[in-house]
Design a protein around this nucleic acid. Structure first.
Length: 559
RNA sequence: UGGGGUGUAGCCAAGCGGUAAGGCAGCGGGUUUUGAUCCCGUCAUGCGAAGGUUCGAAUCCUUCCACCCCAGCCA
């Protein structure tokens, strides 16, 4: 890293560097702690890149740990998807995946410890009563009548809770802190509640489960996490996080730091809302290519490199920010432009017959796989008397200026990419008046050569042989929401759903080499965009391509 | 309202008392057999506002304003 060109350290990197330089931290340990109650989305990608990235950068380690303290909302399917997504992004965790539930025995012991020390009690207030007792922002809460019971009674009741002798909601274990604290989290927060449901990891072993607050700091301490990084909304919990650590015989004391979560415009990043889209079948599952989930983006054709680069570019701060999706799209194009082999695919075909090309003859054109990367080799394109071009690439309107329409115009010339310059001689229409065929002539000697001085092609268009090609379906995606802030204020995000977020086009014709396309492998369809095989919809007989993202288009809105 | 957090360009974001980095978007131009890529140039007398300290303030002090978060037996 050169001093002049290296990226400035973000605030967390600065803190960590200081801790390492001063010897406060000998080895950095972080963790990514998702709750397995949904699929990971782009916002999680930021946290993943941050936590794992920090560990990589400072020679430390980052654990993958499931915060599975609420079995009512969690599922094994989510656990599996999360592991897959983190690994796909290219991150590795040391040893086995961790679970908060791995430590339930220890948490129980620590709960007993708090009770014995007079720092926790079993409270039999109902939820409604507890809410009343908690007070309001400007008014302090009042102590629960159960607050000062003898230790022995608390011990006995807590044991009954564990043994299942109380119904759900009958009572909870609370920390005894300060009912007058201006921080609501310190007004005797709940440590354990009764949940008579089986857990995806521990089965029916427990019917009481620790709260987030009673689990998180202790998990960090058990794992030796030095820097526990979470999002801003947990800043209010930090005093409680520290109180528990200071009142429990934990092996070490981690520090919590908060950063701003990622928000993207035209996007919803809320597991609850994404789950609603899935449950109500507004989309085709958590991995629908329109979803901002990691699995959806993977299926759409986004690459790990593009996501990681994106997370790198947006930075890490404490100021709430909404990033323009254009920034994400830039990262995807940037990576794909570099790595994607080029191919031609005609999405809405229009037949062109080359009059001066003999029927039955096939010429083989050669094109580089990538215009800027010779090492990727060449591909072969069969050129025949009948070819297909994009319907939008032909017009009879001869009044269009060369600047406004750089494609094929009746009576004018255009370059067929990687092949001849042709001239449109006439067009043939059906009864409905639609153009169904163009008759053209090719200009001899223009393969790889410029045409004579007097012939000026208007532009370059893509094409494919009408007889030697591969049939495919193309799925064109647009943003899922039309509103830049679909869930702002009291808006119903479903109202902002874009009815045209998916356009399925069948009967597209791709160049012959596309028959060997592999799932998740990106191609650039020249002049169209980046595409990849959809692993779910494609099978032996049908090829289905997802459009990951279109090419940058700096002209369509100007003409 | 009580507490917590944040305000630097259309969107992000450096800056840590010495005279506003960088990226995205935009705009102008060049190269180009992809209207792509690439290249060049341009884009804040200004840092939420007002005062103050200082030779000097986005950086320090004071007051004010705006926005976000918490007030679940969710995380």
């Amino acid at each position: 890293m050169s001093d002049a060109n290296s990226k400035p350290l973000n605030f967390l990197e600065q803190i960590i560097k200081q801790d390492i330089d001063s010897g406060t931290t000998t080895k950095l340990i972080t963790r990514f702690p998702p709750e397995p109650n949904g699929y990971l989305h782009i916002g999680h990608a930021k946290s993943i890149c941050l936590n794992f990235g920090l560990a990589e950068k400072f020679g430390g380690e980052c654990n993958l740990r499931f915060d599975d303290t609420n079995p009512a909302k969690e599922e094994l399917e989510y656990v599996e998807s999360i592991k897959r997504d983190v690994a796909w992004l290219g991150f590795r965790w040391p040893g086995e995946v961790r679970y908060a539930s791995d430590y339930f025995d220890q948490f129980y012991e620590w709960a007993l410890h708090l009770i014995r020390e007079g720092n926790a009690y079993v409270c039999h207030l109902t939820a409604e009563q507890a809410k009343e007792y908690r007070g309001w922002a400007t008014q302090p809460g009042k102590p629960s009548p159960w607050r000062d019971r003898p230790v022995e009674e608390n011990l006995a009741d807590f044991e009954k809770m564990r043994a299942g002798e109380f119904d759900e909601g009958a009572c909870v274990l609370r920390a005894k802190i300060d009912m007058a604290s201006p921080n609501m989290n310190m007004r005797d927060p709940i440590l354990y509640r009764i949940r008579k449901v089986s857990h995806h990891q521990t089965g029916d072993k427990w019917c009481i489960y620790p709260s987030y607050d009673f689990a998180h700091g202790q998990e960090d301490a058990i794992e030796g996490v030095t820097h526990s990084i979470c999002t801003l909304e947990f800043a209010d919990h930090r005093p409680l996080y520290e109180w528990l650590l200071n009142n429990l015989p934990v092996p070490m004391v981690p520090r919590q730091y908060e950063f701003a979560r990622l928000e993207l415009n035209y996007t919803v990043t809320s597991k609850r809302k994404l789950k609603q889209l899935v449950d109500e079948k507004r989309v085709d599952g958590w991995d629908d290519p329109r979803m901002p989930t990691i699995s959806g983006m993977r299926r759409r054709g986004y690459t790990p490199a593009s996501l990681r680069n994106f997370c790198d570019l947006i930075g890490v701060t404490k100021s709430g920010s909404t990033i323009d999706v254009g920034q994400l799209e830039y990262c995807v194009r940037d990576d794909l432009n570099n790595v994607a082999p080029r191919a031609m695919c005609v999405i809405n075909p229009l037949k062109v017959t080359i009059r001066n090309m003999p029927a039955g003859e096939t010429q083989t054109m050669k094109q580089p796989v990538h215009p800027n990367r010779e090492e990727m080799g060449e591909r072969e394109l069969p050129f025949t008397r009948e070819i297909l071009i994009e319907q939008d690439d032909f017009t009879e309107d001869t009044s269009l200026s060369r600047k406004k329409f750089k494609r094929l115009v009746l009576g004018d010339y255009v370059r067929l990419r990687g092949a001849y310059v042709i001239k449109a001689e006439e067009s043939i229409k059906n009864e409905a008046g639609e153009i169904v065929e163009v008759i053209a002539t090719l200009v001899e000697g223009t393969v790889g050569e410029n045409p004579p001085e007097d012939i000026k092609p208007r532009g370059v268009i893509h094409w494919v042989s009408a007889t030697e090609n591969v049939d495919c379906e193309v799925r064109l995606y647009d943003r899922l929401f039309n509103d830049p802030a679909p869930d702002a204020g009291d808006k119903n995000f479903l109202d902002a759903l874009n009815p045209e977020s998916l356009t399925v086009v069948k009967g597209c014709k791709g160049e012959i080499g596309l028959q060997f396309a592999q799932p998740e492998h990106a191609y650039q369809f020249e002049r169209e965009g980046y595409f990849c095989i959809d692993a779910q919809y494609s099978n032996g007989s049908t090829l289905v391509f997802n459009r990951t993202i279109g090419l940058k288009d700096s002209w369509s809105d100007k003409v």
